[in-house]
Design a binder for these strands. Sequence first.
DNA 1: GGCATATAGTTAGTTATGCAACTAACCAAA
DNA 2: TTTGGTTAGTTGCATAACTAACTATATGCC
Lengths: 146, 146
Amino acid sequence: MPNNQFKRGELYSFMTGKASTAIARRLQKNFKQAGIDITVEQWSVLYHLWKQDGMSQQELCNATFRDKPSITRLVDNLEKQKLVKRVASKDDRRMNLIYLTDDALKLEIQTMELANTTLNEALEGVSSEKISICKEVLQIVYDNLK
Amino acid sequence: MPNNQFKRGELYSFMTGKASTAIARRLQKNFKQAGIDITVEQWSVLYHLWKQDGMSQQELCNATFRDKPSITRLVDNLEKQKLVKRVASKDDRRMNLIYLTDDALKLEIQTMELANTTLNEALEGVSSEKISICKEVLQIVYDNLK
DNA sequence: GGCATATAGTTAGTTATGCAACTAACCAAA
DNA sequence: TTTGGTTAGTTGCATAACTAACTATATGCC
């Protein structure tokens, strides 16, 4: 027995992700205004490389919840912009290890600040408790479906 | 003073919309399995037309939180699939009013059931109270940024 | 060693998104 | 009524997504 029943279309905006679209758009706008010329999708890849440099493309797929072709193209574009480099792994020549360039390292602090600013804009007027619950729910949704 | 400060990247998945991506993907998969050949984006347009047929493209932009070119192309594709028709407004010839075809009317019940199923899959194990709070937070985020 | 299978990544084709620039129609003020 | 601004929609370009099919390398079993 499902533990929730919804009225017709009640959770439409939940499903269609208007909130996350709005956040992504605002973050993109904030990047642009700061003169930072990367897409939010590219940023999400850099984000994981800042945490751990030299990940393989497959690891980036898992981390960013994207499929392999998407990561191929994102890395293509990041490489064009000289933000990352593909390096063939010596252990397993099927793998590309992705390394940040100095240019990309310089972007970390500034973009993380912009991300924080964006979230503060988004969550203005929401209590920490509610944010926490919301985050928890979204995590469960992700785990249920991934 | 912002009322929330986040640890570095703490809300990454909040920002990048993994949960809504996962829901959209699952809904798409459920459509496909049921033999329904529309994209979730197309469904989101049909959704609003089921509530109110004959909306203009601009109204669909506002309703679906998309820009005008996106709606132009979605309506193009829906028209190709014979699910909607563009009808020039008599009052204002700049406007196209978008009307559902019989084929599209037939899809409503089945796809709304699939949407419900998908949401139940997504929200399995989450209490109604938490869902309610999460929905409220997402609405505020949307209102803050739109 | 050799073959089947699995894994990492790329390529091709379709759909979707965002921005900018454009056309057409409407409207209001001179 | 003409001029100038606004609104509705389209088109072009770049990026991104998913699916399916592909190449190349690795691995495991005989």
